[in-house]
């Protein structure tokens, strides 16, 4: 059997493009918009979410036969909140500046709908290994959109990538100006709208 036909492969790669959590399943948009002014914060946020999602999927799947149905939401939220506290402490210890910029949005990973939705719809009914792959796949799918939006916003909004000047000074001399609009909130909404349009059109063909 070819590797592209295995179930594990599909579980891992589907969410990266076809059923992408943001543009396909419409989940977790809140943080996707807020942290994408700069590429650096977007990448850190993507990594933090992938970590939390992978671990929460794995641990919920390991416990799926022990969790009573009636209180499952509370149990899931407790697991997720613990992982988020862990991620937040690590960021504060090693990447203090970025953690300051992300401010409340690391904490808001708890209520990010992607995590609860994957736990509810996938991890509760599937074995640990597949759940882990599903978690990593969804996390990467989320990061991919975040990074695309952040590249657009930082490049056109500030002329920089990772804080380095990318657009040459001769452009500015010739009259080019940064689009201040991209840095502001409306720029993020419109950028996501256009990315979804592109993705839908491409995947139809």
């Amino acid at each position: 059997m070819k590797i592209t036909r295995t179930k594990a492969f599909k579980v891992f790669f589907n969410p990266i493009w076809e059923s992408n959590p943001i543009s396909g399943q419409i989940l977790g948009i809140c943080s996707a918009l807020a942290v994408t002014v700069q590429l650096k914060t977007a990448i850190v946020m993507g990594l933090a979410l992938t970590f939390v999602l992978a671990c929460s999927n794995l641990s919920i799947s390991l416990m799926r036969k022990l969790i009573p149905r009636n209180i499952r939401i509370i149990v899931e939220l407790t697991i997720i909140a613990t992982l988020v506290i862990f991620a937040d402490q690590v960021l504060k210890a090693f990447l203090y500046d970025i953690s300051k910029q992300l401010s409340v949005f690391v904490g808001l990973i708890i209520t990010n709908c992607i995590i609860l939705a994957r736990a509810e719809t996938y991890a509760l009914g599937n074995p640990p290994l597949l759940s882990l792959l599903d978690g990593i796949g969804n996390g990467l799918g989320y990061s991919q959109i975040l990074i695309t939006v952040a590249v657009l916003r930082e490049l056109f909004g500030a002329g920089k990538l990772f804080g380095f000047q990318v657009i040459p000074n001769s452009f500015y001399a010739a009259g080019y100006e940064n689009m201040g609009f991209m840095v502001l909130a409306p720029g993020a909404f419109i950028a996501i709208g256009l990315i979804v349009w592109l993705q839908k059109t491409v995947s139809k063909e």
């Binding site: 909130a185 409306p186 909404f189 419109i190 996501i192 349009w197 839908k200």
Partner: peptide
């Protein structure tokens, strides 16, 4: 609405325009 933009896509763009008005 142009094909592919219906639903989610156009909602995001409308929200963007609303955000602009609120600014």
């Amino acid at each position: 609405v142009p094909e592919g933009l219906e639903g989610f896509g156009i909602s995001m763009i409308v929200t963007g325009l609303m955000a602009m008005a609120f600014m």
